[in-house]
Design a protein around this nucleic acid. Sequence first.
DNA 1: CTCCATTTTGCAAATCATTTGCATTTATAT
DNA 2: ATATAAATGCAAATGATTTGCAAAATGGAG
Lengths: 141, 141
Amino acid sequence: MNKNNIESTLKNQGYKLTGQRRFIIEAFEECPAHYTAQEIYEKVKAQNPNINFSTVYRNLELLCKIGVINKLNISSGISHFEIKHDEHHHHVICLKCGDMQSIDVCPYAELKVSELDKLGFVPIEHKFEIYGYCKKCSKDN
Amino acid sequence: MNKNNIESTLKNQGYKLTGQRRFIIEAFEECPAHYTAQEIYEKVKAQNPNINFSTVYRNLELLCKIGVINKLNISSGISHFEIKHDEHHHHVICLKCGDMQSIDVCPYAELKVSELDKLGFVPIEHKFEIYGYCKKCSKDN
DNA sequence: CTCCATTTTGCAAATCATTTGCATTTATAT
DNA sequence: ATATAAATGCAAATGATTTGCAAAATGGAG
């Protein structure tokens, strides 16, 4: 997913390409990490001081809806957003500083799903998160 | 973890055993599922109509702190609480009705953690959640 | 059993993230 | 260039969770 992909996805689905949306998409491009809405807002505000918080929120939801970013609900209770990667991955999350990093391991692939069948549950997506202390924080203390 | 365990854990750590706490603990005992704070509040209120919401919240946090219940932050954004089981387990969560069920599968056990070592990450706990549609909701629609 | 220090509660009000209503502005198809 | 539907900014609403504080309750000491 790059800027052009995202912009054409937007247009193909009948959404307008506004300046605000461009900046939001760029904010993700710049560094493909995980941001809170607040962080995106600040990044965009640096470029476009008039942008409103609710515009950012609305567009983050929109970008999720059209499937170009993911919303991550981690234990802190604050939603994080990340650009959708081709490769599916999961996260390690620091309990002290809140830093999140991606890992390439996916346990789902190897999972025996017989238990889901038993429940009659139809899986759509899954989440695997490891909480602990990152290099920096485990050293500090 | 049963009522007596929990009550003595409380006392051992210097916390008082109040009527409100008793009712909250009983609410979990009754049926060892996953509740929102709101649900616990309603269950307790049926027994003790004067109890306040913030008392429930404070005590749910306390019970987490002393390690007898777990707080689950799922994608809906509403915290759920469950009594800590001896057996470690994970959840399937319905995207439609929000229903949560436990599954016995744990992918972590079989995980090659070499990737964590590489990051210098010290794992403390982990979460594995499968989102999809429960039996009832996948039938409805 | 009574008294006291300390913890806990109820209440109301504060927070914090997120969402919404609405008038105004903007993007784009024609 | 214009019309129209979609998007934005703003302020105010929401909903979950948290907090300050005075009053009430617990549990240990006497």
